[in-house]
Design a protein around this nucleic acid. Sequence first.
DNA 1: GTCTATATTTCGATAGAC
DNA 2: GTCTATCGAAATATAGAC
Lengths: 204, 204
Amino acid sequence: MARTQAERKSETRARLIDAAADLFARKGFHGVSAEAVADAADRTTGALYSHFGGKEGLLLALLEVWKERTVGQLAGALSRAPDPGTHFAAMWQSITRPAEDRGDAWLLLEVELWLYGARDPLVGARLAERYAEIRAELGEGLADWAAATGTVLPRSPEETGGLVLGALLGCAMQYRLEPRAMPQQLIIDGLSGLLGLSTRGAEP
Amino acid sequence: MARTQAERKSETRARLIDAAADLFARKGFHGVSAEAVADAADRTTGALYSHFGGKEGLLLALLEVWKERTVGQLAGALSRAPDPGTHFAAMWQSITRPAEDRGDAWLLLEVELWLYGARDPLVGARLAERYAEIRAELGEGLADWAAATGTVLPRSPEETGGLVLGALLGCAMQYRLEPRAMPQQLIIDGLSGLLGLSTRGAEP
DNA sequence: GTCTATATTTCGATAGAC
DNA sequence: GTCTATCGAAATATAGAC
């Protein structure tokens, strides 16, 4: 066990970032003390300051991990999408299912980071890059599907991705406050309408 | 000047709520001290606690004002809407124009309150009511237009309102980080698609 | 590299004068 | 109803031991 040093270091880093993701989502960045984050990670504020220089440095590190993680899992989900309908359903469920491991924590952290980014230019620039990547991934996935099935999409992939992402985000926020107001079928129909597909009705 | 008492009281209330709306939007609820709010309102923490019992009571009062104000101005905008396209354009501009008086402060406060409501059941319930009202107003306005022009909307007014509100909110959040990614024409086209109107292209 | 202990500041909230 | 003064609690950040 000669590499205990580096192991311990990177594990502490990971533990602190995970704890920050959880607590920032549940209580908000300003609603959590650096000590509370360190406690949740079974470390102390000394370690936190040694690694990240402070609470804000921890948030910046979290932002990078968050960026890679979301874009990566999105790309994975897209690669095995038979059609937009089931694709949208899968995305919607991944956003709205409440508990399991983390569940609606994703949405809370997403909005928390957006709010931080809207107030802080540096974080805002990072977030803008991340959203652009998501729009691109999302739009390309749908464009691939369209090309494979001979469907004609009315907009460019990036534009399509932006509209879909926007609708998903805004609808998820409403769903979080009142789930009954946003049934899954409504989301799927609406997103299909955004693509120019008139997949409404479909009564037996 | 016999009613100086009541005047001073209600003016202090209004000043504190206005200052709270501004500061909560710019810095976030937890990012602002009660003293900072009182200072911005040219009052002291004593007055704040006398009126609202604390910072959280001030937020609840702000929420009520916010609720009435937004629904009211929305209803006003709807009553004079010639068609969905110009209607959407007007709504989009009212969300995205940057300064003037308050401008993107609306979006920041909206999201700040949402985040608070997602974490606090009491505030969440109030917010849910507000969103339901907005969905209803929005959907009814569009349904009226459809009835007047003989257009058939594929969904109920509430469902339509929910999709439109969601798309507007999510797109506005992306716009705030990167305006170029969300041009107005894209929003109008997308929302039209949500309604089942195929208003795409329209090349000369 | 991490922990304990602490210095310094700031916050929320209250008591009492006016 | 509002202001001044202030108390106790909690937060950030650091210094030094291990």
